[in-house]
Write a protein that binds this DNA or RNA. Structure first.
Length: 261
DNA sequence: AAAGTCATCAACCGCGGGGAC
DNA sequence: TGTCCCCGCGGTTGATGACTT
C-alpha cells in the first residue's frame, strides 16, 4: 500500500517515508514551523522535495491528525457537504477536525460515493413507482406535486448540478493547515534570516520549485547558522522521541528551552 | 496453495491562485 | 501591468493487503 522508496536523478527520495525521515520532519516543524516548504528539507536534512514534506506533514505527521475509522456523524457530514460543495475536499476537511482533505477524498471514493449511488438508485425507484401510481390524478394536483418535489428533492439550482450554498463556509485560507502549526515568530524570523544568508544562485541553481534537491554533503562551513542547525537537527544524538505523549512533551520542552534563550 | 482480482490509501503530479516585486 | 515565486488543491497513480476463484 506504500509506494517503494526510490531516488530520482536529482538525488531526491520518492515514495514511502522512513521512520527516520518522519522524525526529522516532525521535530523540525514542531521546533521551527514551516517557514518555507521549499527550503525546509534542506534545513531539516531531508532528501525530499518541499512539496513532499508539506504533504507528509499535513496528511500524516501533524499532531492533531485523527487516525482510524470515520464515524457515522463524519460520514453524514461529508455526504451532506459534498452534495452542497462538490469536490471541495479542503473545505470539507475544515469541518472535520483532525481529518485531512486527502483522507476524506480517499474515503469518499472508496466508501461514500458508492453508498450515495445506492441510496440514489433506491430513491429514484421509489419516485418512479410513485409517479406511475399517480397517473390517474388530475392535472392540477400533478403540478402542485411537482412544485413540492422541487423543494424537497435535491433539485439543482446551479448550472453544475450543485445547489446554491446557503451555509457560511469558511474559505480554504481560513482553515489553512498553516494555522495548525504553532510557529514561534522569533524562530521564523531567525530562519528567514538564515535563509537570506544563502546566495540565491546557490539555493536556486536548479529549475523547478518543488523539486529542489537537498545536498547532504554541501559545504556548511560557509554558514555558521546552518551548521549549528544541522548539528542540532540532523546529527542530534538519539533523542527520546516517540509517537506518544512523551515525544510531544519532549518537543514542547525543547521549544520552551529555546524560547528561554 | 497459487493465481487473479479488488479495495485501500499514501504519495505524486499538474495546475491555478495570490502575493511580492 | 506583467512576471516570478510560493503554496495549496484536486485528480490520479501505484504498491500492497484482502478477498475470491
Amino acid at each position: 500500500m506504500v509506494k517503494a522508496t526510490l531516488v530520482d536523478k536529482n538525488g531526491l527520495r520518492k515514495g514511502a517515508w522512513s521512520r527516520e525521515e518522519d522524525d526529522k520532519l516532525r521535530v523540525y516543524v514542531q521546533k521551527y514551523g514551516h517557514w518555507n516548504w521549499r527550503q525546509l528539507p534542506r534545513f531539516a536534512g531531508l532528501s525530499r522535495c518541499g512539496k513532499s514534506c508539506r504533504l507528509r506533514w499535513i496528511n500524516y505527521l501533524r499532531p492533531d491528525v485523527k487516525r482510524g475509522n470515520f464515524s457515522d456523524e463524519e460520514d453524514n457530514l461529508i455526504i451532506q457537504m459534498h452534495e452542497e460543495l462538490g469536490n471541495k475536499w479542503s473545505i470539507i476537511a475544515g469541518k472535520l477536525p483532525g481529518r485531512t482533505d486527502n483522507e476524506i477524498k480517499n474515503h469518499w471514493h472508496t466508501n461514500l460515493s458508492k453508498r450515495v449511488k445506492q441510496s440514489e438508485s433506491v430513491s429514484s425507484e421509489l419516485v418512479n413507482k410513485e409517479q406511475s401510481s399517480e397517473t390517474s390524478e388530475s392535472a392540477d394536483s400533478q403540478a402542485e406535486k411537482s412544485e413540492t418535489d422541487s423543494v424537497s428533492v435535491n433539485t439543482p439550482s446551479e448550472p453544475d448540478g450543485h445547489p446554491k450554498i446557503v451555509e457560511n463556509i469558511p474559505s480554504p485560507q481560513e482553515i489553512s493547515c498553516s494555522e495548525l502549526s504553532s510557529m514561534n515568530n522569533d524562530y521564523v524570523s531567525a530562519m528567514n534570516g538564515a535563509a537570506d544568508s544563502f546566495s540565491p544562485m546557490e539555493i536556486f541553481q536548479d529549475s523547478g520549485f518543488w523539486n529542489q534537491p537537498f545536498l547532504a554533503d554541501n559545504n556548511d562551513s560557509q554558514d555558521d547558522y546552518h551548521s549549528l542547525l544541522f548539528t542540532e537537527e540532523v546529527y542530534m544524538p538519539s533523542y527520546p522521541f516517540n509517537f506518544d505523549d512523551d515525544g510531544v512533551n519532549w518537543i514542547q520542552q525543547m521549544m520552551q528551552e529555546l524560547q528561554d534563550i
